[in-house]
Amino acid sequence: MATHQTLPLDIGRKVIAHIRGESYDVYIRGWAINRFVVIDLPSVNGENVRVAPQTGCNINYIREGKMVSFKSSVVYSFNQALAMLIEYPKTHDIFNLRKNERFRTSFPFTYVFDGAKEAVEERGYVRDVSMGGALLTHSKPLTKKTNIIVNITFPQGTVTKMLCNVCNVRKNPRNESESYVTGIRFINPSPENSDVIRKLLESRVQPDRRTGPRFTS
Rank of each mutant, 00 (worst) to 15 (best):
A2T: 15
Q5G: 05
T6M: 01
T6I: 02
P8E: 01
P8N: 02
P8A: 01
L9W: 02
L9C: 00
D10N: 00
I11S: 01
G12H: 04
G12E: 04
G12P: 01
K14H: 05
V15W: 01
A17E: 05
A17I: 01
H18M: 00
H18C: 03
I19R: 05
G21N: 02
S23C: 07
S23F: 06
Y24S: 10
D25T: 07
V26M: 14
V26D: 12
V26Y: 15
I28E: 00
W31Y: 07
W31N: 09
N34H: 09
R35A: 07
F36G: 00
V37W: 02
V37F: 05
V38K: 07
I39E: 02
D40Y: 13
L41T: 05
S43M: 13
S43A: 06
V44D: 10
G46V: 04
V51E: 03
A52V: 01
P53F: 01
G56F: 05
C57S: 03
C57A: 01
C57M: 05
N58R: 00
N60D: 00
I62G: 13
R63H: 02
G65P: 04
G65A: 04
K66C: 00
S73E: 10
S73Q: 14
V75L: 02
A83C: 07
M84Q: 06
D93R: 06
I94K: 00
N96P: 11
L97G: 03
K99E: 04
N100S: 14
R102Y: 09
R104G: 08
R104N: 09
T105H: 08
F109Q: 14
T110S: 12
V112S: 12
V112W: 15
G115A: 02
A116G: 07
E118A: 12
A119H: 10
A119Q: 15
A119D: 08
E121G: 08
R123K: 14
G124W: 03
Y125I: 02
V126A: 15
R127D: 05
D128G: 03
M131W: 13
G133R: 11
A134C: 02
A134R: 06
L135F: 04
L135S: 02
H138R: 10
K140A: 05
K140D: 00
L142T: 07
L142Q: 12
L142P: 05
T143L: 11
K144H: 08
K144D: 13
N147W: 15
I149N: 13
I149K: 15
V150C: 15
V150D: 15
F154D: 08
P155K: 11
P155V: 10
Q156N: 12
G157A: 14
T158E: 12
T160M: 11
M162Q: 15
C167M: 13
N168M: 10
V169L: 04
R170T: 07
E176M: 07
S177N: 15
E178R: 15
V181H: 06
T182M: 10
T182E: 14
I184R: 12
F186I: 12
F186V: 12
F186C: 07
E192W: 13
S194V: 14
I197M: 14
R198Q: 10
K199D: 08
L200I: 12
E202W: 14
P207Y: 14
R209M: 11
T211D: 10
T211G: 06
G212D: 10
F215E: 11
